[in-house]
Structures are given as C-alpha cells and as structure tokens.
Design a protein around this nucleic acid. Structure first.
Lengths: 156, 156
DNA sequence: GAATCATGTAACTTTGTATATTACATGAAG
DNA sequence: CTTCATGTAATATACAAAGTTACATGATTC
C-alpha cells in the first residue's frame, strides 16, 4: 500500500541547518517550527537525530535552543539523510505473497536491481554535496536575486 | 507526511503478466487475486490500466478473463509502470512553507536535482527491460533451479 | 430466456506511519 | 522561584492505495 504524502524530514532539516548557520544565537524549537510551518514537538523529534549524530547541540534555559556543532564542510546531505533516520527512498516496493514462485523472484530481483542503482546514484549525489556547498549556493543566489530576503524573521 | 506502505502495483502487474504469458487460456480476476494475495476488485482496477494501454484484453462470460494482447518484446517495464498510473517514485519530498525563502529554494532545488537524476536512471533501467526479457530470465532460472514450480496452481 | 460466468464500477472501510497536537516532566538560566 | 527551553509520552490526523461489499452489466452455455 502507498501514500501520497512525502517524507519531508531531509528537506526540512537542511533548511533549518542553513538558517542556523547564518546566525550566532541558538534557534528555539518554537522559532524553527514557525519557520517550517510545523509543531515544536516535531522539530525536537527530528532535530534529536541530528544531535545524536553530533551535528547540532541543544541547550535548555534562557538563551537556549539549537545550534550548529560542527564545520558545515564536514557534513554532507547524505549524512543528514542518515541522521534523520535514513528514511526509505522509494514509494514503490515489492510484495512476497509466494516467496517460492520463480516468476515473483525474477520480477522482484529485476525491480530491486533497478531501484538499487537509482538509490546508489541518489546516495552518491547527496554524499557529494556538503552543507557548506549548499550555503555557498545560497550566497551566490543571494548575490543575484535581491528579492525577499530569507534572513528576515520567519513569518506565518 | 509520509507512509511506509509501498506501492506494489508495478511488481504485481509484472508478476501477473509473466504468468499470463505462460498459458493460453485467460486468467480470471479471481485467480489472479488468489495468486497475488489480494481482492479481485483490486486486480480489475489495476488491470484496467493495462487494458487501456492495449497490453491486455478482457472478456466476460464462460472462459472469459484476462489475456495478453501484444508481443511481450514490445512492452518494457517502464510501459507497465506508466500503464498502472505512473505512480510516484520517491517517498521523500519537499515542502514549501515559505516559497520566497532563498534557503528553501536552494535546498529544494538541490534535492530535486538529485532525485531527478535518480529517477531518470530508474526510468532508463525500466525502459531497457522488456517483458520478453523478463520471461527469458525466468526460463533461465527455471533451467537451473528445479525447485517449486511457479506453474502450479496458486495456493494460499 | 434463464442460469452461470466474468468483468466493471461505485461506495465505503482499512491500512500504516509520519506528522500534528496535547500534556506534562525535566533541567538550566536569571 | 519564575521563566525559558528541551524531552517525551500519548493520542489524533492525514493520506491514497488497498481491501471489501454490493450490485450492474455483458457474454456464454444450455
């Protein structure tokens, strides 16, 4: 069975990390939730994976919140993907109602091969881009498009 | 939001088509449902896409059911994928809570690029394999593994 | 022409899991 | 102590494919 809804954890966390990288003071879960259009509990849940991986740190109390814990040049998009749970990539999958059926085996192996190759490519692409490179792309974009600035306080 | 359930329409239909290719008489929706471990209505729903694409035909009445309508060498896995609705490939996706945010743009563009490449590869792989080639792979497998034969009547 | 076989389709329910939400515990700063 | 902020449990929601029930429709057979 499938669902239309997409897993947005990776894009959300990349979004957050780039914003955090541009400020010195920590960002609270509430502020991040507003920026992402979600709930602070969801932010804490997902950020926890990044903290466990050592990419961010969290602090309670006044002035607390989340902050970057490493050099962004050392983290790739793949690292972040894995830190948020390494969620599954494909919406398509195989079933195994008759594991001994050779037709089923051949079909599933063929599809699995193709999906493995596609996933390997996706993984390789994600591994090739560091968070620092993403930040540089943003800087270049900032230079050429003086439109609305992402640096403004997030609004609803 | 995402869900774990995988869309199995493609693998199911490939499974069915290969079985159908090995017999002369039509297969009923009920028989196919038993083979796939599902409901006849679900089979009719999915097979309708193949019929509309011209790959199978259906007949009512005694001796009716589904049958192959074309040379399997002319259908690729990609064709079948498209005939079942060209379902979405990735379980991951992006959100757009702040479309004017440049960070969001850069992040989403980068992820979209990587996913586009991966999908292009998957699509290419599926396009490269015809149903006839899948059948040959099955024949070769049959020759080397005299285990349980898929040709037996489907069992629970 | 009636019985049986078989598809076609509408309507409704179920599914699985991330997300959304509520609630509250816990810890740190001031 | 109050306030700020995270951490986590429990519950509800979302979603579309799948599962299911029900019945209409058409073809074959006798």
């Amino acid at each position: 069975m499938a669902a239309v809804r997409n897993d947005s954890r990776l894009s959300r966390m990349l979004h957050v990390l780039l914003h955090m990288a541009r400020r010195d003071e920590p960002m609270t879960s509430e502020a991040i939730a507003r920026m992402l259009g979600t709930n602070a509990v969801v932010v804490r849940r997902t950020m926890a994976g990044l903290r466990e991986a050592g990419y961010v740190r969290s602090a309670k109390g006044h002035g607390g919140g989340w902050s970057i814990a490493v050099d962004l040049a050392t983290i790739s998009l793949l690292d972040v993907h894995r830190a948020v749970g390494g969620p599954r990539v494909f919406a398509m999958g195989n079933e195994h109602p008759h594991p001994d059926c050779l037709v089923e085996k051949v079909v599933n192996e063929t599809l699995d091969d193709a999906m493995r190759q596609a996933e390997a490519l996706l993984t390789a692409r994600l591994a090739q881009v560091s968070l620092a490179e993403l930040a540089r792309r943003f800087d270049r974009r900032m230079g050429t498009l003086p439109g609305q600035c992402a640096e403004r306080e997030p609004t609803a």
